[in-house]
Structures are given as structure tokens and as C-alpha cells.
Design a protein around this nucleic acid. Structure first.
Lengths: 168, 168
DNA sequence: CATGAAACGCTAATGCC
DNA sequence: GGCATTAGCGTTTCATG
């Protein structure tokens, strides 16, 4: 086996994004409501320049949108869980897609990951009680014909560094 | 076993949040940069009322912050993965906490879930190449003394309905 | 492509109901 | 608590270098 290890902790200089763009992206990722005037001061350019750059990042889709982050506990959904789902081997592509669409539309669902490996899906939900977790799995996941198994994990702690855009 | 099934698809009326608050939260979750004037028009109150409500939601921590959502592909990180991590049985609480703190600070990391069940952690990362995935697991996860096993799943598709605040 | 100037629109505070 | 008003500030456009 090749022993070479290439470590690239901050690897990326995306094509088309210069230093100024990247600093703007970083700042708006942390505080999406920072005023353009503050942003301009923070990166050391004129407000009109910061504005043009930000507009361009939005137009190019690098910044996909802005969102309020919500304290689920304060919203009465103090319990979060991740549910690993495996589908039946014979599931057709249509039924898999239909499953994903159905799940992602449910109000308890925060995120859906379609993955390869042990599980086929990971579903991140926020609800009020353990009974709600069970009801979600029983009524919405296991009830689907294409579902083979589920594996529910309660979330004890959660940390988010960034907000990833949904795949297009 | 009790056969009663209680289905509560939109279950929550958080204490202290009335309809107006909830509609504001919903709208700012979808578009965190909506102007206060637009928000007021959308919910049918005066701009000054919408402003007071939004300020209150921020002060109470219901809205934890605002963030730009980023197209990771456009940033040159076109490959996302979820890594399930199990820790060694003898790991002390201190070492577990230290592991979590170390991982969450890495620039490739988007989210960290501390869960109960098969895995102890789920780590959501975005990188450029499959080699970067391997390097991340080898150099940053498996290299930790308290880690017993890892299980890497490539993300084929991803959908996000909301942005959850990190646990406080 | 960044900038300064200027018109426009919004925010945020105040007092009133 | 909601509302109208208003002063101050930020945004956004545009001509210029």
C-alpha cells in the first residue's frame, strides 16, 4: 500500500473565486445579515465593490440563499434524531425517488442525505417527544413499501460550521 | 404492545410563539434576507410590528442567526460524505469531548452529530476529491486514539428544509 | 474592475392608541 | 401589543478613472 499521505486541510481555491470573493463568502456564511457597509469595511473595499461582488456570487449561485437558523428547542421540537434507512434490493429507481420526495416534504424533516454505503438514506428530524420519533419512523418511514430497515439514533449534541445548499 | 398510533404531522405550537411569530420564523427560514417591509406585507402587519416581533425572536434566541447557504461544488468541494464514528469503550468523557472539539474545528467539516445508537458521532464533510475523503478519515478521524471504527458514506444527493441551530 | 457621489428605500426608534 | 411617523442610515445605481 502506498504510504504517501497528502494532507490538505484548507485545500480549495475554487476556480473563479479570488481572495476577496472567498472572504465575502466566509463572512456571509457566519453572518448572513451583516450589512453591506460592514462587509465592505471588513474586507477593506468600497461598499459599491462589496455589493458588486456579493451580487455576482449570488448570480453565479455560489451563495445559494440566506436562511435564519432556528433553535428547534424554542420551537417546541426539543428532540432531534437521525434515521438511517435501507431500501429493499428490488426497489426501482422510481420508487426510490418517490420515497425521497415524500420524506423530504414532511414538516419534521430538517435534512435528507441520499448516501451510498450501509444505509441508503439518512433523515435528520426534529420533534417534540420520543413518541413523535417512533410515530415518524413507523408511520412515515417503515410504512413505505420500498423500505427494508431503519436505524434510529437520538442526537445528543449538534454543531454546524456552515450551511450547505441542497443539491441542484 | 399498545396499538394506539398518534399521528402529529405538524405538531408544535411552541409556548410563547403565536401564529404571527411562527409565520415570521417560517418566512425568515426560507429567505433570511427578506426585507422587514416585505416580511410585514407577507404576514399582514405594519413594518414596525414585524420589526418588533423579529427583534423579540432574536432576543429570545428562537432565531439563532442568519447564514448564507453555500454551493459546495462552486467552492471546489464537489464531494460530500458522512462518516459514522464509534469510540473505544473505555474512552473517558474528557477524551470524547476533546475529540468532538478537534473535529468540529476542521475546515472540511460542515456538521457534527453526537448521537446514541450504532455510531457515537456522524461527521458531515465537503471536500474536493475521494483522496481528500480518505485523507480526512485517516489523518483526522482514525488518527485519534479514542476512535474505534469509522464508516464512510458518500453523499449522492442532499436536501435541506431548514437550518438547525447548534446546541447551546 | 474598483470607486465616489447621489437618489432611493429601509430600518429602527418614538409616541400614541 | 399594534400602529404611524420620521430621522438616520444603508443600499444600489451610475459615471468616471
Amino acid at each position: 500500500m502506498d504510504a504517501k499521505i497528502t494532507d490538505s486541510p484548507n485545500p480549495v481555491r475554487a476556480v473563479g473565486l479570488d481572495d476577496l470573493d472567498q472572504r465575502i463568502v466566509e463572512l456571509l456564511s457566519r453572518d448572513g445579515r451583516m450589512t453591506n457597509a460592514e462587509l465592505a469595511a471588513a474586507v477593506g473595499v468600497a461598499p459599491s465593490t462589496a455589493h458588486t461582488r456579493t451580487r455576482s456570487l449570488l448570480d453565479r449561485g455560489v451563495i445559494a440563499g440566506f436562511h435564519a437558523s432556528l433553535d428547534q428547542q424554542a420551537l417546541g421540537r426539543g428532540l432531534q434524531a437521525v434515521i438511517g434507512v435501507t431500501l429493499r434490493g428490488g426497489s426501482r429507481h422510481d420508487s426510490i425517488t418517490a420515497f425521497a420526495e415524500t420524506i423530504r416534504a414532511l414538516p419534521q424533516v430538517i435534512q435528507v442525505f441520499f448516501v451510498g454505503g450501509t444505509d441508503d438514506f439518512l433523515v435528520h428530524i426534529a420533534v417534540a417527544t420520543t413518541a413523535d420519533v417512533r410515530d415518524f419512523v413507523v408511520n412515515h418511514i417503515s410504512a413505505q413499501a420500498s423500505v427494508a430497515t431503519t436505524r434510529t439514533s437520538i442526537i445528543f449534541d449538534y454543531h454546524r460550521n456552515a450551511v450547505a445548499a441542497s443539491f441542484g
